[in-house]
Design a protein around this nucleic acid. Structure first.
Lengths: 383, 383
DNA sequence: AACCGTTGTTAAAACAGTTTACCATTCTTG
DNA sequence: CAAGAATGGTAAACTGTTTTAACAACGGTT
């Protein structure tokens, strides 16, 4: 396919310099479209053209755009009128190239098959997107596939000036490439997790508090044999839950058992299988704490289809409070994580970090328990 | 906070011109960090620096980067070696500014509260993201809030050179601002829908085929009184389903009834309410076709909690085949939409459209039925 | 009147690439 | 062997903005 001819400049460079106030409002360029017919295209409007038409310098227009206090009110109005009249929109590639920032932040998701279709990520993303929009930033999404990281594309994001900063969702200590960011001082915030060494900036939910709230509930309902379906032991926040679970049992005078702990892989199927294993190991178990809602749902599905009533025989508590699960049957008691707010905060802090307003980011947001139908009083205590 | 001092150039412009082959591999600039201590920062590497070090012109380096056939094998290797040695990465703001494309495409989502946490959008997005990555394109996400559209930010996306093209997910004929794209010939593809006037490029699933497959199944199972929970009558593809549903009934010698049609708003709750209305209007109804899985799930929830067994009393068929619903109880018979593939195709076609390789895009992908537990034979026909 | 300090504006130099027109070579070919 | 074509490379123009240093005009002090 032949390249269409470029616009030919209607006047020479030097002529330009001698005719700063030239009337040029009717300038048009003739261009040929694919059909070979002529077509009138309005002169593409850039800052130079606006300056010419307004009878000021390019610098003045730029300063009007950026609301510089050095421009007088009258000039500001005059130039703004011309900008509106000509429908001028500054080219942001040029702006970013010449300026310090791209005004774009990336969101990096883990290489899971359904990362985009995930309620957990989606909720955080909503918060990020809303705040990014308010702050005048655009959002780029990337999935950190192994190939992507191996080729160093995560660093290219900064080095080729795609973005000013990155928000990382769903990663844990196994993803060691994240340290690359810290090593180069590239703005990056780990969302809903932290690294053990605390070298990476982070923002996460208070998983210890959440686990405490869930355990308090189950213990108050009289449960003594409480199983736990955990996942991702390489994730510090996931470990927080297990540790708090164990500590809660101890504090209640119960000896925790290794038998009560099963990995559910954060998946529906894993949760179902974990419930099976738990009850086969110890039929006394009357309550199960799950590391996320998906596993809790899987567990409930296994239980209800294998002769255990929920919550009559076994109580189940989840973690996340993802949407549209309030309608599960029975509906799920779960620890609500403020994921939307977490996204908002992450985005806000990232921009502050980019602007150099903060040196280090480490924030924790409180959780709360949502009581629904999947928990009930311990059998023996019921009247 | 004080602005850190910029790098001061270690040599004047003219000196530069007279020392094209200068040894400069050890050049460093001294910069002061916030603590006021000195810090060595490697000279930032741009195309000019690479050209100097390799002893060629800037144009040559550029042509090596773009694999121009006008560069000899020996020069290519020499320059590539220097590029690798210096760790040079072209600034893509400069590339896009001077070149024709940004290599970025936007995905626009409707202003729904949980647009990012949606399994339907997520699946399409996965396909888009995968293909965009392969084509060397980045992905920008936007939510088309009313404010966003009102301020013309959807057009800014092109006019300020954020992106080369846009993929629109989840919109329908009510979203008239989409015509703005067509009017300006900005590359945009409507994903999984079309506009009645066919002026907009589109890619969608074959909803007629899907509805046909669902209806064939229900009719073959002996159902004669079949309700339908539709939604979004302003969506042409949604109308396809209703029309095919009606036509199927007629073709089977059944007189369709207005009573059998209820709007379920594409939501879980809407589906539940629709099921209630349907059965109150006509208790004879033994099967329900739902416009998406969410509504089907809502319907099943209503039915099972109000004394109707699924599928023994009422069969339910969904539409979409979203993930993690195979595990619902009973698991859902549904029309599988190739959403991932649709995303892939949309992205591919958009890039072709951007490159001018195609003038108009209009593609339809076939569906298939996934038989699971929510459908069964009509009561009276069972042995 | 000379000097100083504002205030408002501008020319020119970045930013970092791509593209084009032109210029040497070297290779064919009549 | 001279003319013409092909090859490989380069200088300079171009993309569209921000930013900085310089400066003109003007008011207010000594």
């Amino acid at each position: 396919m032949p390249t269409p001819p470029l616009n030919s400049s209607p006047e020479s460079k030097s002529a330009d310099a001698f005719a700063p106030s030239r009337e040029a409002s009717k300038e048009i360029t003739v261009r040929f479209n694919n059909a070979g017919t002529e077509e009138k295209v309005p002169e593409k409007v850039n800052i130079r053209e606006v300056a010419r038409q307004a009878g000021v310098s390019v610098a003045t227009v730029s300063m009007v755009l950026n609301a510089s206090p050095r421009i007088s009110r009258s000039t500001h109005i005059k130039v703004q009128k011309m900008i509106d009249k000509m429908g001028y929109r500054p080219n942001r590639l040029a702006q970013s190239l010449s300026g310090r920032y791209t005004q774009v932040v990336a969101v990096m998701l883990p290489p899971l098959r359904h990362a985009f279709a995930d309620a957990y990520f989606g909720e955080i993303l909503s918060g990020i997107a809303d705040r990014a929009g308010k702050l005048g930033h655009k959002l780029l999404i990337e999935q950190a596939k192994p190939q992507f990281v191996k080729e160093g594309k995560h660093l290219e994001l900064y080095e080729r000036r795609f973005v000013d900063g990155v928000l990382c969702l769903g990663f844990n200590e196994k993803h060691s490439f994240l340290s690359d960011f810290a090593a180069r001082r590239y703005p990056m915030i780990l969302v809903d997790n932290r690294f053990g060494d605390n070298l990476l900036d982070y923002v996460h939910c208070d998983y210890r508090l959440g686990a405490q709230q869930a355990m308090n509930c189950l213990l108050q309902l009289g449960h003594r044999s409480i199983g736990m379906v955990y996942a991702a032991p390489e994730s510090p926040t996931a470990r927080d839950v297990v540790e708090t679970y164990t500590a809660s049992l101890v504090a209640a005078g119960i000896t925790p058992s290794e038998q009560w702990l099963v990995d559910g892989c954060f998946t529906d199927e894993g949760g179902a299988e974990a419930a099976r294993v738990l009850l086969s190991r110890d039929p006394q178990i009357s309550a199960i704490l799950c590391g996320n809602d998906k596993m809790a749902l899987g567990a409930i599905r296994y239980l209800t289809t294998h002769g255990h009533r929920v919550p009559d025989d076994v109580s189940v508590v989840g973690f996340d409070d993802i949407q549209h699960l309030a309608y599960a049957n029975p509906s799920l008691t779960t620890v609500h994580l403020p994921l939307y707010e977490l996204g908002v905060l992450a985005c806000e802090k990232l921009v502050e970090r980019i602007r150099g307003k903060v040196e280090h980011v480490a924030e924790v947001l409180p959780t709360h328990l949502v009581l629904r139908e999947s928990t009930g009083m311990m059998r023996s205590l019921r009247s």
